[in-house]
Design a protein around this nucleic acid. Structure first.
Length: 701
RNA sequence: GCGAAAGUGGCGGAACUGGUAGACGCGCUGGAUUUAGGUUCCAGUGGGUAACCCCGUGAGGGUUCGAGUCCCUCCUUUCGCACCA
């Protein structure tokens, strides 16, 4: 939608009331919220976002009585700040509220305003930034506690979909109400004294953040002196006595409207009978099958123009009826498709017993953009199926990984008439300065400059997609896997880079060559033989590094679930091993052990190459059947360790001490160091701090 | 606007519990090998400085012996906001 018109047809967009089918997700709000707490294998931020989306708030429903056409009615509002009720100076209702409709009947200006509000956006983001406007209805309601008459306004910021489509206006203690009151000259009353704020600071013209703070009731008659909770409790009790309110839990979550006015979705299996109402399609007539020969012409749902689809008989009374032509939101399908993988061959039921065996999904992967809707709808759908005895589990996804999207460079040229042409990064040569920073880009075919628009999500329209099959053919699937796992943590966006893939391929070639040379040098059939006591310091250090890498990589894969640092650790080990040119029998045995570890550690990332290298190393079993290696505690022991010495928090020297040195020994060694002596010369040493771990000393002078 | 994240060299990122900032890789520079290009190998690579050193994790303040990490204020970017899915 652009400027209130559809971008394709130019048609004016308007809000319209359409009867729709809703799924009552709100009925499960509490359980959907409660269970989040136990879903520890989901990312924290997704759980937080879902919790906020469900949006439980505890407050008070308050009734403002009024008379209309001689009959007594009550305008209901919900508030989390019932303590401010005595400061309510107006009420505001949504444009769709019955009171607004009623008042508009006799008030043309109001009718026009109401119509204007209805034309406005329904999107939360747009409502939030639009100008707050209102108009008096001329109607008044009675304040339930003070008995004062207070005016009812129509506000374009009041949502019909939240609560009952009406709010009380407390300009003294709500910023939105304050601005509204100032704008329209409505009275402002201050009824809360925020802690630590001087009462003289109250202003009738300038909003201050503190006005909304909790505090003690003032100017509130019998409630004066009560704090937030005391006032809420007392006011709720008084309202309840009069039948004009009670404590209530309100949810931000709305019911799920699933009707879509288009034909390429799953049919809603209902028949609309003028006599019997909405009648479900009988089981034996399911599924309802859509015609496949329809072509949308841009003027609404083609099913509405297809009598062969919508004309039918009512299953109850046999009379002429009309089949529902709205179809379902595609989120409906995505809410349970995963269950069907367990029972694809069952054409008689949604699921069968096998789904109970396989569910929940052990590891679900999806983009962060699905953090709320898809993942919440699926959780809801499972609960419904469980309540219908179709399945036994209620949480669909045991562990969730929200992976980042893949980005690539975008290059374009903008022509005069606002047209844009996008060029594939493969067809562009990049110009670099002496540091390797990108300073420009040219199209290879004509040598003329193109504009770089940064790294963005791969898409057809931006012509920056990459076909993985070409790359797999050129470098092998292992190299692509190593690149993708190495480039960034899986949750982060992945910036595509041909050079990066090249680097991963180079790394794997280096590994291949290293194993090859090792195997050539001596028959591994002899097996690794190490006399641990007789290892030289260099051999011992090599062996320590290999086992330390094993510990780190195991932790990264297991507890931390990050792969880029695991691969980096293996690369480090390989770099060290390449410098280790010890060809003695002991040296070869140490190298053999380290190489085997590398092959095993890398196998989850580069399975094909590692499988083959494992066999080259003389094994007859398959690597995938081989148990994960265990570190040798003996190998991890260090005799001497390096200690970093700081003076006033700045790194000044490094000293070596025995691995079992005490704190006193460490600080003595640090203070004895010549460089440190120079730094502390002439200044009294006030403190020497040796934090646990014994890897660092800070000398404070 | 609201909710959720993120911001570290030329680039992607590392630093896990407040303790050596820049691991690892890409790129770049120089050299070796090569008829040449590519490949491979070696060395260097945050900024300033002749050096000692100084400065540096989006900006500004604070806590601490010590802050990329904790606290406060602000800026920017990304995701979501219910009819794109």
């Amino acid at each position: 939608m652009i400027d209130g018109r559809g971008w394709r047809t130019g048609a004016l967009v308007e809000k319209r009331e359409i009867p729709m089918y809703y799924l009552r997700i709100t009925q499960y709000a509490q359980d959907l919220l409660d269970e989040l707490e136990h879903m520890t294998e989901w990312p924290e931020r997704v759980r937080t976002m879902q919790g906020n989306w469900i949006g439980r708030s505890e407050g008070v429903r308050i009734g403002f009585p009024y008379e209309l056409d001689g009959q007594r009615h009550v305008l209901s509002v919900f508030t989390t700040r019932a303590d401010t009720l005595m400061g309510a100076t107006f009420c505001a209702v949504a444009a769709e509220h019955p009171l607004a409709t009623h008042a508009a009947r006799t008030n043309p200006a109001l009718a026009e305003f109401v119509e204007e509000c209805k034309r406005g956006s329904a999107q939360e983001a747009e409502i939030a930034v639009m100008e707050k406007r209102g108009m008096a209805t001329g109607l008044f309601v009675t304040h339930p506690l003070s008995g004062k008459k207070i005016p009812v306004w129509v506000g374009n910021y009041v949502l019909m979909t939240y609560g009952e489509g009406a709010v009380m206006g407390v300009p003294g203690h709500d910023e939105r109400d304050f601005n509204f009151a100032v704008k329209y000259g409505l009275p402002i009353e201050f009824v809360i004294a925020p802690a630590g704020m001087d009462a003289a600071a109250f202003s009738m013209t300038q909003w201050r953040e503190e006005f909304a703070a909790y505090g003690v009731c003032i100017n509130s008659g019998k409630y004066d002196g009560l704090d937030y909770q005391g006032a809420v409790d007392a006011i709720a009790a008084d309202l309840q006595k009069q039948g004009l309110g009670e404590k209530q839990v309100q949810w931000r979550l709305r019911d799920w409207g699933i009707s879509r006015q288009r034909y390429w979705g799953c049919p809603i299996p209902l028949i609309l009978c003028p006599k019997c109402g909405d009648v479900p399609v009988p089981d034996e007539d399911l599924p309802v099958v859509l015609p496949e020969n329809l072509v949308p012409d841009g003027s609404g749902n083609p099913l509405n123009k297809t009598p062969s689809f919508y004309e039918c008989k009512c299953p109850k009374c046999g009379g002429d009826a009309r089949r529902e032509t709205d179809t379902m939101d595609t989120f409906v399908d995505s809410s349970w498709y995963f269950l069907r993988f367990a029972c694809t061959d069952n054409g008689r039921a949604m699921v069968d017993e096998r789904a109970n065996y396989w569910m929940a999904v052990d590891q679900y992967i999806g983009g962060i953009e699905h953090a709320i809707l898809h993942l919440l709808y699926s959780r809801f759908w499972m609960r419904v199926m469980r309540d219908m005895d179709l399945i036994k589990v209620k949480e669909p996804f045991a562990r969730l990984l929200t992976q980042g999207m893949v980005l690539n460079n975008i290059y374009s040229r903008h022509s005069g008439e606002g047209r844009v042409e996008y060029f594939h990064p493969d067809d562009v040569d990049v110009q670099l300065d002496a540091n390797g920073a990108q300073v420009g880009a040219k199209l290879r075919s004509d040598g003329q400059p193109v504009q770089w628009e940064g790294m963005r999500t791969m898409s057809k329209s931006k012509n920056n997609g990459v076909d993985p099959t070409d790359l797999v053919a050129r470098h092998g699937a292992d190299a692509i896997r190593v690149f993708m796992m190495f480039k960034a943590p899986p949750e982060d966006t992945l910036e595509w880079s041909d050079d990066g893939v090249e680097g991963s391929a180079r790394f794997l070639r280096r590994l291949w060559r290293m194993v090859w040379e090792h195997v050539e040098r001596g028959p591994p059939a002899k097996g690794p033989r190490q006399d641990l006591v007789a290892l030289s310091p260099a051999q011992r250090e090599m062996r320590r590094l290999a086992h330390a890498t094993l510990v780190k990589v195991t932790d990264d894969y297991g507890r931390r679930r990050v792969f880029n640092t695991a691969i980096a650790a293996v690369m480090e080990l390989m770099n060290a091993l390449q410098k280790f040119d010890d060809t003695s029998e002991q040296g070869c045995a140490v190298r053999h052990e380290a190489i085997e570890l590398i092959v095993q550690l890398l196998a989850p990332i580069a399975p094909h190459i590692c499988h083959e290298l494992w066999r080259q190393l003389g094994h007859t079993d398959s690597l995938i059947d081989h148990p994960w290696p265990q570190p040798d505690p003996q190998a991890l022991i260090q005799e001497r360790v390096e200690v970093v010495v700081q003076v006033n928090g700045k790194l000044r020297a490094k000293v070596e001490v025995g691995a079992s040195a005490s704190k006193d020994e460490i600080s003595a060694a640090a203070l004895a160091d010549a460089t440190i002596q120079k730094w502390i010369e002439g200044k009294p040493v006030r403190k020497v701090i040796v934090p646990p771990g014994g890897k660092l000393v800070n000398v404070v002078v």
